[in-house]
Design a binder for these strands. Structure first.
Lengths: 196, 196, 196, 196
DNA sequence: CATGAATGAGCCTTCATTCAT
DNA sequence: CATGAATGAAGGCTCATTCAT
């Protein structure tokens, strides 16, 4: 009826995922220890293996789940966009909010790709490319419609993503800037540049 | 001209730094072993200690040297800038070129800060802040001179740096885009935005 | 009855203590390696850490346990002594027997104090002083009662302890002298000196 | 003309011996490092090998020289003794003084015998036995002359030596007891015992 | 499912010793 | 003689993983 420490049932895996997320975010995959993780969840290290296959697989699951979720939410956000300008504004807003909320997942998803074994790495890279493609398609459509003027849509895609993703490195939800302002600032910067 | 096996002389440290750079770039600090590093340089693992103090100190030296070099080069690049617009263009060009050339140093300098011991970490963070301040000052000056229109100079600083730095994640010097084009694309994007 | 190879259960720690005692006695703390110790117990070196905290802590535990045991036994031995002469005779007998039986513990307890980290060292020195104090008190009481005539009780304490403790350096239980004779010889020597 | 740091000439060996003595006394043979020793003398570790054969040989030389010196001085001290009582008193006084003055040599000479390789160990043990024999002979002579009454001369020899040698564990030359008093106390204790 | 204990590989670091310069 | 740098062996300790209970 109640969920006790040294928890049982399906929630243990969730606890492991949550703790893994936090620990990898803080110390990095290599530096994180299964013993640390176990302690965090209230288990012995060996018991983790009743829930995960290997440390490597845990990392993959974390990133993989995140990528799937990211795509789903993006598609929801873009649904019903009326034109490339609208779509780009929606993309910017969605990406920022998501990257603030899922800061840790995002960070791990990009910084720990190199810790994945080649096969796992490939899968994630494919998923990531799909995400990038969404933005690239928006830019292309905007250029086609002569709403946007862009040097190179692929490069601009990377540049824009880099800028927007950068947020999870420094944004402090408790700081002086609200999420709305953040969106406005970035939208203005990307759509109109710094020029007066 | 070539690296002697079992290298001697003062160049050994240079070889260690070079190999360390490469290995940390590829595998990350935690994942790199001193045995790997030693093999790369043609030494036994223990012999490294004739040249470095500890693995941690090697990481710090690598990052620290890089930060000093970065600041020096930036100041050279900005010297003689005539106005904020000129300064911003110079900053963009410099940052991009530098981040392409010193891709590994830059990457390590940001991704491995968390692997530094607290004291070392603090030093680097201070240096990095000084670099950010240069860009922020340019933006502020541009706003003052009514050349730039910016939501928030500190946030814009982070956003711009994120975009420009992102380059070392994906840019391929052997690819289809020249450095000149890259600079043009980013400059246009940042100064005028995507709008037509 | 016999020590199982790759021993399990709570007796593993006991086996580690026993082997540690022997190895440190034979080779000294610095010279003993955990690999030696592990082999002796039938484990891999790393597995020792399921039972001990560190090599240093093992040394401390060995000495500390011994000191506690020593004091307990001494107090049992002195209980009910009728006068200083009786007490001194009891002390001599107890000390000799104990130092023959616990030869290794005693030896390590004095020769490896310098291998202890300062804090641990301090604790042991305190315990040892308590033991010395017992003898000193007996001497003082004897002088008070005009049964003993002694130059300086503190110095005599050290001198007597040195003599009695020396036994574990050379006594061979399988040799020609019985423990009883040993006690007689030392008691005579200390109480009456060599003079006729 | 002058003896500089990083000294030359025959005095370097002396400096190495002196430093080795001190370091082994403080940390033990195993725990002492040739790098420590070299630093103490103002050399690089490798340079020590211009003066010593090996670390082991250094230990042996230190102990061996000390044993030779000890025997020489003992024989000087006993020369001209008139009777066993006189000889015993001389022995006691000599042993105490010597063990106070050459505290470090004596300590090493007994505590580091186990660090000697078997052959070296044997040589030292032989020398030590010769020293013990001197005392045993005195006791035997005293018993023969019916001046001494002793349970077992060999055991008493060990017991007396243990007591007298113990001094270098605790005696503080700057303490409240003079060397003369020390001699008196020990002589009284050994010749007359504690009894009134 | 959880535990405690074991494994075996590996890590960073230290050390005595050697040797070209 | 001294140095700086190299070697190779080893040392204490950690870790992912396994498995009997």
């Amino acid at each position: 009826m109640s969920r006790t420490v040294g928890s049982h049932g399906p929630s243990t895996l969730a606890a492991i995922h949550e703790a893994g997320l936090q620990l990898i975010y803080e110390h990095g995959y290599e530096a994180m220890t299964l013993r640390q993780l176990a302690r965090q969840v209230g288990l012995q290290a060996g018991s983790l293996y009743n829930h995960i296959e290997t440390k490597q697989q845990l990392l993959f699951d974390l990133i993989h789940n995140h990528m799937i979720h990211l795509m789903e939410k993006l598609d929801e956000a873009l649904e019903g966009a009326e034109n490339p300008d609208d779509a780009l504004r929606r993309f910017i807003a969605f990406h920022l909010i998501y990257h603030i909320e899922k800061k840790r997942e995002v960070f791990i998803g990009s910084s720990e790709i190199r810790s994945l074994e080649p096969e796992n790495q490939e899968k994630i890279v494919t998923q990531r490319r799909a995400y990038e493609d969404r933005l690239c398609a928006i830019l292309d459509a905007g250029v086609e419609a002569e709403i946007f003027k862009i040097g190179d849509s692929r490069i601009s895609t990377y540049a824009i993503l880099a800028m927007l993703t950068g947020i999870c490195t420094w944004y402090d939800p408790a700081g002086r800037v609200t999420q709305d302002e953040l969106i406005k600032i970035h939208t203005a910067l990307l759509i109109d540049g710094v020029s007066h």
